[in-house]
Amino acid sequence: MSNPTAKNPKRLRQLLMTGGAGLAAVTVAVYGIWGGNGNSGTAETCQIAQSMAESVQPHVGGEVAAFIPATSPLDLSTLAFKQADGSDATMADFSGKTVLLNLWATWCAPCRKEMPALDTLQSEMGGEDFEVVAVNVDRGGTEKPEAFLSEINVENLSLRHDGSNKIITDLRKLAKAPGLPTTILIGPDGCEAGTMFGPAEWASKEAKALITSALQAVKPQG
């Protein structure tokens, strides 16, 4: 049987070009998964956060029903902000401690509403192994967030701040923090164990059970 493409050089060139385009598409797809922000290189470094994510899964519900346990934990140790005293800090400074990172602003009504619950959570569960790290992202200085926290009598949360909003930009590059509030549970390895987009009642029994489960996942078994 004759080969029609052998007698039609133009048709043969079209097929080769189509095949090349398909190969290029596959290459791009693979790079999208394994390159850039694919985060494949964190599989080993984020094992603790992965264990935490699996541990908290049964506790997702009620007041924390929108919490999303990480399936491929992201290394968030380079996220940066200012401490209460104005010094520079990154999540790497909290190595060895489980952190509930909350991003908020004074103009964000849901953020303002959930702040007392975060303060209570820090009061009741904060310590050597766990801390609520609330980072304000109001543009400019700290005058407005300081006044707000004073107004609602927050006593247990330190005012962390990022007036440049770089922390938001960095998270959006990873498909995180599409809006405020955003709250991320970060393991002692600096990796994401799970994320909540939107507000939650963080002083609720469901939230405390979720945090407790995460902490238990990293304790030595004996």
Rank of each mutant, 00 (worst) to 15 (best):
L100F: 12
K144L: 06
V154W: 03
V137A: 08
G96I: 02
C111H: 05
S164K: 14
S95K: 15
L100V: 10
L100A: 06
G126R: 05
A147E: 13
S164L: 07
E146D: 12
T78Q: 15
Q122W: 06
G163Y: 02
E124L: 08
A147D: 11
T90S: 15
L103C: 13
R139K: 13
L79K: 10
E143D: 15
L159M: 07
G96V: 04
F148P: 02
N156I: 02
R112Q: 09
E155D: 14
L157Y: 03
T106I: 10
M91Y: 07
E124C: 07
P145W: 05
L157G: 00
A147W: 03
N136T: 06
M115G: 01
C108V: 09
F148V: 09
G126I: 06
L149A: 10
N165G: 04
L149Q: 01
E143G: 00
D162T: 13
F81I: 09
S87L: 00
D162G: 12
L121H: 05
P110D: 10
S77M: 05
F81W: 14
K97I: 00
F148A: 01
V133E: 02
F81K: 12
G127R: 11
G163P: 08
D93Q: 11
P145R: 03
F148K: 03
L118T: 11
K144T: 09
T90N: 13
R160L: 14
D162W: 11
W107Y: 15
S150H: 03
G140L: 05
S95F: 00
